[in-house]
Amino acid sequence: MFIHDTILNRLKRGCETMDYPAGDAPALPDRHGGGLRVESARCAADCSACVSVCPTEAITRASGQAVALDLGRCLFCAECVRACPDRAITQTGDHRLAARLREDLVLGGTGKEQVRLAAALNERLRGLFGRSLKLRQVSAGGCNACEADTNVLGTIGWDLGRFGIQFVASPRHADGLLITGPVSKNMALALQKTYAAVPDPKIVIAVGACAIAGGPFVGHSQVSDGAGALVPVDLFVPGCPPHPLTILDGLLRLLDRLGGPSGKG
């Protein structure tokens, strides 16, 4: 009888929610690679091996300048890692990738070897959203992978609800938007209407390479190359798709909830 079964099963399995952020983060899959690190000092003088292999043209190197890798356009395919002869671009295995400013995602300059992680929201917004953030998810032309990995944050293993973060049905109930997809032209109006329907103050989170800069579809006339073209974005979470841990880390970093009640993480 399923009633007994389910109760016994639940008792046997106990609590299946992970300890993170109170405990350690779960390990990324070993072949995942995590984030990227660009040490332009190691680059050979005129080498642009990485520039020509990048599928989204995320890497540029003007002559005489340091190489610049835009993590916002990056699909994390690691072609550049394999192509680089000098190991200037390496994988860090770190899941933390979320940034507040678009510029913070461009790696390569001095002091910008890795992504500058997101700072928390200002005090006022932290006060409003820190313990209760209601987000309206807008799928603006995405391939459904970012949506799936956002959805999985609501399941019992991750349990986003314990941070007071919840996805709501109407933008009128929401504190902010979470946008995935490169914002196809056909979804532009819907995104604008949704943004306008969210009451002030509001935040916008762009998840995935598509939402930041158009992803694999960058430059297509049918897309707007990311949410930034239409609405102001407060948090960028790179990846294709970003691992749920990366998304969660970004959200918690934004609300200053890493490391439990005391805050900093």
Partner: peptide, 14 residues
């Protein structure tokens, strides 16, 4: 092109 196989992978992301 360079991006084609990535676009094929994301036709339907699941």
């Amino acid at each position: 092109g360079r991006a084609t196989v990535y676009q094929m992978e994301t036709v339907a992301g699941d």
